[in-house]
Amino acid sequence: MRRLHRFVEKLLNGGRPRPFPADDADADALRVAIELRAARPGSGAPREEFIAGLHRRLARDQADAAPVPVRRRILVGGAVGAAGAAAGVFADRMIVGPPAAVPAAERLTPDIGAWHPVVNAADVAEGAVHGFSAGGVDGFLTRDGGRLRAVSGTCTHQGCRLGVHERTKLRCPCHGALFALDGEVLYHRLKAPIPALPRLAIRQRNGVVEVFVPQGPA
């Protein structure tokens, strides 16, 4: 009874219930508990963060799975991309996809691109690596010798999202490629060489670092 009670309490307060070996009577009680909990008004809708997060995860997954060369895939992606503005949309945008909640068209000025605030400049200490996602583009902001620099956070091989590795490198979770913080390729075990990470244009305004996300041909 105790474990059943705990399971039901988790359902009631929105947590993840802990598994336990249930008997027939438990199963019947849980079925009813789930049914009643699901009937609570307004509780069945997914969170927007969840929808956007899964969208990004699927985009990475799709990018990994695609057997076509990266160049071609970007073009195909451009043709069918959600933005529909079609060919030549900035490559990173296509791979990552716009967040579901905010259609790209509302955020970016067509043809020109837009500056997106990323972080307060004061919050980026010397040697810090700040990952960001702005306007559908993932990137990393670093400060080296006082100067700020931003590179794309998307692997140039198949578009997987990079992670920070040992605080001084960017590592691709898909095939293990390593990039320096300035975008240079440090290591890969791929048949063909891969290009360095593109630099992203940044500026400081009122103490805030902004990154430029082009919308037209990049």
């Binding site: 359902l11 789930i34 909990r37 069945g44 809708a45 997914p46 969170r47 969208h55 699927l58 959600a82």
Partner: peptide, 27 residues
């Protein structure tokens, strides 16, 4: 695939939520 996802994610989530009754598992 994005159209597939966006058109169906709400439906599938609600279905899952109605079957497990909690958000972490439904997600």
């Amino acid at each position: 695939w994005e159209a597939i996802y966006l058109h169906n994610v709400d439906r599938i989530y609600r279905l899952m939520f109605s079957k497990v009754g909690n958000r972490p598992d439904a997600e």
